[in-house]
Structure formats: C-alpha cells, structure tokens
C-alpha cells in the first residue's frame, strides 16, 4: 500500500514540485499517473523510492513510514519495489542474462538461486532466446522488457514504471503494457507514469492527473482527458 499525506517537495530554487499531495494506492491496484512535463510525476516516483525526501508531509509505503526510515534500512526497503525507466538504464557491457542476474547479485542472492530465477523471468517477458544478447543488439521494446525482467526478478510487491513506453513505438508500447497488466494480475501493485494517451484511455484503469505539483483529478476508470485539459501545446 502507498499512502501520501499532504506531501510537499520544493527544490532549492524555484516553485514547489509537489504541493499538498494526498494519495492512497491500495495493494494490488493498477494506477496511471498522467500530467504535463513538470507536473511533479517524476518527483513523486523519486519520493516513493526514497531517492528524495519530502519538504513536508508523510509518505508510507508497505506500511513503513519513509520519514522514519534509517539510511541503512533503505536498501532492504527498495528490494520490495521494482523500477522501470523510460531510458531502460541497462548495463551496456553486460548481456541480457547478466543484466537481470545483476539485480539478484546486488541483493546477494546465492548463485544457485540466480540460475533458477533468471530464466523464469526471461520466459515471463518473452526473451528466453535472447539471453546472450547485449543491449545494443536489441530493439527498444526488447530492452524495455529486459528492464522489466530486472525489475521483477526480485519479486517486488510494488512496480513503479516511469514513462516505460516513452521511447517505444505503439506496438512495443502495447506489449509492455500487457506485461505490466499481467504482473498486476499476479498481485503486484503497479504505478505507471505516462504520457501515452491511447494506452491510458484504452486500459480503463485508475488515472491520477497532476498539474503544477497538485492532483487535479483522481478517476477510478479514467482516461487522459483531464491531462489533455492542462496540456498547453
């Protein structure tokens, strides 16, 4: 479960990135967060990962108050959260298998269990045949699937995806979304930050719209229309 109570975040210079955000996401939900650039979506993700500290307010993730969490407890907390980025952030000098195994090595899983677990997630994202390929040999969609596999390999209870389809064509975008939906069906809470209007409208999930650091709408089975209203092109 994710809970934010009156959260503010102001960077050293400029206007607040988040301004009085209160939000509750239940376990097992699938939520889209949409909004203009600079609306505070990425700041929100960073706060949930405890990459940033809020200026004010309280954030609880999986019943743990992040404000009270000690620095040495952060790594263990992050192991409960999978993260996928727009630019994939794969290690270019390692092949697909090693990129995924890396996430398990980092949390010091024994080699035997890594050898068992990595092929499972590779099958789950449909890349079992490309385990020897290097990132540069893969398409954008395939790279994002590797990133997704890496996020899933440690069995997180929450999956955060920051613009996961931002660099992908529509076909690959849909494939990634289908995978995320599948992950959600298995019980993982999924939070997707996106600009992809077509997907948001089609999937009919909960949609939280942000603008200039505040939540302007929170629709149970919403679309991208609120965001459209605020996008100034």
């Amino acid at each position: 479960m994710i809970l934010l109570e009156d959260v503010n975040k102001t960077y050293s210079q400029g206007a607040p990135a988040l301004n009085g955000i209160s939000l509750k996401i239940e376990k097992g939900e699938f939520v889209f967060i949409v909004g203009n650039s600079g609306s505070g979506k990425s700041t929100l993700i960073k706060l949930l990962l405890k990459e940033l500290e809020p200026t004010k307010g309280r954030i609880c993730v999986n019943n743990r108050d992040l404000g009270k969490m000690k620095r040495r407890e952060v790594p263990r907390f992050r192991r409960e959260i999978g993260i996928v980025f727009q630019d994939f952030r794969l290690l270019k000098d390692r092949n697909v298998y090693d990129n995924i195994a890396f996430a398990q090595k980092v949390i010091e899983k024994p080699t035997r269990s890594i050898k068992k677990r990595v092929p499972q997630v590779l099958t789950q994202v449909g890349l079992s045949e490309k385990y020897k390929s290097f990132p540069k040999e893969l398409s954008g969609g395939e790279q994002q699937r590797v990133a997704l596999a890496r996020a899933l390999v440690n069995g997180p209870s929450i999956l955060l995806a920051d613009e996961p389809t931002g660099n992908l064509d529509p076909k690959n975008s849909w494939e990634i979304m289908k995978l995320l939906e599948e992950v959600n069906k298995r019980g993982t809470t999924v939070v997707v930050v996106t600009h992809n209007r077509e997907i948001v409208d089609a999937m009919q999930k909960r949609v939280i719209t942000m603008n200039k650091g505040v939540i302007v709408s929170d629709e149970e089975k919403g679309g991208h229309y609120y965001a459209d209203k605020y996008v100034s092109l």
Partner: peptide, 16 residues
C-alpha cells in the same frame, strides 16, 4: 556512475 545509481535503486547496500 550510472551503474552505481541503478545498483542503489534496486536495493544494493552501500557496502556492496
């Protein structure tokens, strides 16, 4: 740097 950033975000301890 990037690798260290990824490591930290996926739960690597400082020690690791």
């Amino acid at each position: 740097k990037e690798e260290i950033g990824i490591m930290k975000l996926i739960g690597a301890t400082d020690y690791f």
